[in-house]
Amino acid sequence: MIHDFLSMYPAKLLEYATCVGYLLCFVGFWKYVQGGKPAEARAEAHEPATVRQAVSEWFTVPDGIYLHPGHAWARISADGVVTVGIDDFAHKLVGPARVELPSAGAAVVQGEPAFALRADTRAVDMLSPVDGTVVEVNRALSDNPEKLDDTYGAGWLFRVKPPRFAANAKQLLQGASARLWEAAAGEALAARLSPELGQVLADGGTPVHGIAQELDPVHWDELARKFFLT
């Protein structure tokens, strides 16, 4: 499974690794040019490992789901129907948002745009984690968008009857692999937001929903597309 995943997404993994490596190099350079103990103390207060760990812990991935690298998840039920939603990272990056869902009867394709998250006047496409025909959509989200806060529960988006879920699952992540991917996304985000960390924290040190808009109100959708692979 991991080999298939790496072969599909080497460019994204390289981007995440580059971001983290750049952050580490920058901090070392900053210590050098500042010199002396006071500068070291300031640097330690913003130790990148601590920042990365804190950001990674913001985002959760429960057991029992399959995670697509574009930050959509799939959960298969006993009758073979697959429920699709967005992961915690996507929700906190873009939310609060409205969801543009496919219609019942529509065909979706793994790795192709199937729905979108809309905030202000812009929408960001997201990729379907599986192939199949949409058999149900979560109409409750239209009247109660706050349900999306329950990302892996009441905030599900639509359900699909997949013709080849076993083949699709080979390109998805589960368990520890899924959590590692979510942590890598958090580290890449930390590399972008470290200087503005306070802007994306609410009281108590928890992230506001809509991190992308806090980081870049003008081009937040471009930032989101980088993480959603669209």
Rank of each mutant, 00 (worst) to 15 (best):
E100W: 02
P69Q: 02
R118L: 11
V99K: 06
K12A: 10
T83C: 05
L101V: 08
R179F: 05
G85P: 06
R98N: 09
P217Q: 11
W58V: 05
T83W: 10
D87W: 01
Q199A: 15
Y22T: 15
A176E: 15
A41R: 14
P162R: 04
D216I: 07
L229N: 00
G155Y: 07
R42H: 07
A212F: 06
E136F: 00
L229G: 06
R118W: 07
M8L: 15
F158D: 04
D79A: 11
V55E: 03
E47S: 10
R139V: 11
W58I: 04
E136K: 13
E222V: 14
A224F: 06
A202Y: 01
F59N: 05
W181N: 13
P69D: 10
H91L: 13
F26I: 06
V200T: 02
Q199K: 15
R192F: 04
L223N: 06
L13I: 12
S103W: 09
F5W: 14
A97N: 01
A184I: 02
G64Q: 12
P96N: 02
Y9Q: 11
A184T: 05
L223Y: 04
V135N: 08
L24N: 14
W156G: 04
A39H: 09
A224S: 12
V137E: 07
R75Y: 02
I76P: 02
M1S: 13
P113A: 04
E44Q: 13
